[in-house]
């Protein structure tokens, strides 16, 4: 009798430790970009579904993909979807769905130009290639009539650590500049060509360098720029429209391409009067056929909720950009194809 009571108590204790209030704990890991969104969203989810706890570890996209391939987690999150090689290593069909949307803005510190700077793809590529070295370069003057651009050297700032933000930004540069595409390419970390360019760690590092360095230009996440009221440049998109970065213009760019896949997922340089050209998704990966169907169903539920209206509103409240309705719908369809 006593023995059994102790055993039960012990079992309860263990269960309590591993899964909160006696329910199931799902684990995910990966992108740090998603972390603020996920932690708030999963918190909300647990309060609505007390039997499920989702534990998300912000270890970086690469780590998330590794752990996902090793099947030590229920889902992975990455700023760039898994590529063919990684999918092969996973060894099983994988569903990848966009889960968060973010824009990348160009911020600057130019004496006498507190706001209202205008840039186009050629200019940005020229600057980051190190071809445009001074703020009073004729190419910049032509884009900013009436603005008194000073004769200050341009200091190019980029992210020092590998990041999804850099991926989106170099993806944009690759699609607007063939020179960039051939010389540098796109990636979470690249070999930055402009001489004297400096790297800052994280959005805050880049922002700090911009603020501290007259003549600096750099790119940061839209959410970070909004929270810190940073001056951002308006960019001429491929339809020739001047677009400032905002949740609306990022969403417009995303909505113009509802059917993203893990091989065709780029939404940079989209046409459209309101499409902001530098933005991209963050992704969640699950196995089409998880080992434990019961668990699989729980994951499916969580992810369906995550790509639904309620969770996307949470994202918007945290200065992410909510997924356009059509993108949400196609993600839901993809999740339906889970084999449980």
């Amino acid at each position: 009798m006593l023995k059994r009571a102790v055993f039960t108590a012990l079992a309860l204790l263990i269960a309590g430790c591993s899964s909160g209030s006696g329910g199931t704990t799902l684990t995910g890991a990966g992108s740090s970009f998603d972390y603020p969104f996920f932690s708030k969203a999963f918190d909300t989810y647990s309060s609505q579904h007390p039997d499920v706890t989702v534990n998300y570890q912000s270890i970086g996209s690469g780590g998330g993909i590794q752990q996902f391939i090793q099947k030590t987690i229920d889902f992975g999150a990455s700023d760039v979807p898994m590529n063919g090689d990684e999918l092969t290593r996973a060894g099983q069909p994988v569903i990848q769905m966009p889960v968060a949307l973010g824009g990348v803005v160009l911020s600057y510190n130019v004496n006498g130009v507190p706001s209202g700077l205008r840039l186009d793809g050629d200019a940005i590529a020229g600057i980051y290639l190190g071809r445009i070295k001074s703020w009073n370069d004729p190419r910049l003057k032509a884009l900013n009539p009436g603005v008194n651009l000073p004769n200050t050297a341009i200091v190019v700032v980029h992210r020092s650590e590998a990041s999804g933000t850099s991926y989106i930004f170099t993806d944009y540069l690759s699609s607007v500049s063939t020179e960039w595409k051939t010389k540098v390419g796109k990636g979470k970390a690249v070999s930055w060509p402009a001489s004297g360019s400096v790297g800052g760690k994280g959005n805050e590092g880049v922002a700090g360098l911009i603020r501290a360095t007259p003549g600096a230009i750099g790119y940061v996440e839209l959410a970070y720029a909004l929270e810190n009221n940073m001056a951002t440049a308006a960019i001429k998109n491929s339809s020739g429209a001047w677009v400032a970065c905002s949740p609306n213009t990022v969403q417009a760019a995303a909505a113009s391409k509802p059917n993203v896949t893990n091989t065709d997922f780029s939404i940079v340089d989209r046409p459209g009067a309101r499409s902001y050209p530098i933005s991209g998704y963050s992704w969640v990966m699950v196995y089409t056929k998880p080992a434990d169907p019961k668990r699989g169903r729980m994951i499916q539920n969580v992810l369906q909720w995550l790509d639904g209206n309620q969770a996307q509103q949470i994202a918007a409240s945290l200065h992410y950009v909510a997924l356009p309705v059509n993108v949400q719908a196609s993600a839901q369809r993809a999740l339906q194809s889970m084999n449980l």
């Binding site: 996209s61 690469g62 780590g63 650590e161 590998a162």
Partner: peptide
């Protein structure tokens, strides 16, 4: 430190 977590 900068690149390890994202290197695949």
């Amino acid at each position: 430190a900068n690149e390890f977590t994202e290197a695949t």
